[in-house]
Design a binder for these strands. Structure first.
Lengths: 133, 133
DNA sequence: AATCCTCAGTCTAAATTGCAAACTCAGCCT
DNA sequence: AGGCTGAGTTTGCAATTTAGACTGAGGATT
């Protein structure tokens, strides 16, 4: 997991990925939303592509020249759980009502991130041990 | 969640917290494990204490002078889910067998981080929507 | 008692990284 | 031809990070 923090342990990368989960994927939009300097944004996007969390693709709007944008790879999408866990953690200790919620299709109640044992039983964080082989 | 990335969006803070989950909490041990420069380590530990993820306490080993060390606060411990999610994500795309596993008391099967709806039903990441109020 | 050792930092100068703002380049639009 | 837009690149300066030396408190060693 040390390498995971190589990728995620960075102010901008986390924010970029969050944007990606919300669906934003054009350079200018990301830049406007998170306010990173362009040069840093270029660098981070390149790194995220190198790490196969994002991929760069061409798109063309009608009557516009082709441009490129970024989208999450499958591997990147799987990081969603990490973001949900982070958001849940943050919301819990923040006293504001969250303005963004993640809900399952066909429900209004937000999803929770929980731990489960191999029998499907929910487990509390305090009830787990570390096993080192 | 932008502020969460203020705290976590940093190469060393993530590693320090991981150490804390493994139980390491003395300055020298953290330093030896993660290799951060001392001055940065001091700075990050102070920040993590300020953000109430860690607390500093005195301890005394028999026949040694009192020293201080760091331990996770309750708020810090709750971040465990984020770390487990990160580890699970990393393990999935890493082809090595993980050498560290988190297992519930009284079992050998590692816990999984999953999403659950309000009725306790497990939900897949692909089945959720964003709701903005 | 003087010196040594360990831990937990602090200090410093050099290297790296981050920054804002200006510049570039391709192609569509008037 | 000139302008505009998106997606960068460049530049010169500011802030952060780094390795490594230094500090200071107190127990241990001589």
């Amino acid at each position: 997991m040390a390498k995971a923090s190589d990728i995620l342990g960075d102010r901008w990368s986390l924010l970029i990925l969050r944007e990606a989960f919300y669906g934003v994927m054009r350079f200018a939009d990301i830049q406007a939303d998170i306010g990173a300097p362009r040069s840093v944004l270029t660098d981070r996007l390149t790194k995220l592509v190198d790490h196969r969390l994002l991929e760069r693709f061409e798109y063309q709007e009608d009557g516009s020249r082709p441009r490129h944008a970024y989208r999450l790879t499958d591997r990147g999408k799987e990081l969603g759980v990490v973001f949900l866990a982070m958001k849940q953690w943050w919301d819990k200790s923040d006293d504001q009502e969250p303005t963004v919620r993640f809900v399952p299709d066909g429900s209004e109640q937000p999803v929770k991130v929980v731990l489960r044992d191999d029998r499907g039983q929910e487990v509390d964080l305090t009830e787990i041990r570390v096993r080192i082989d």
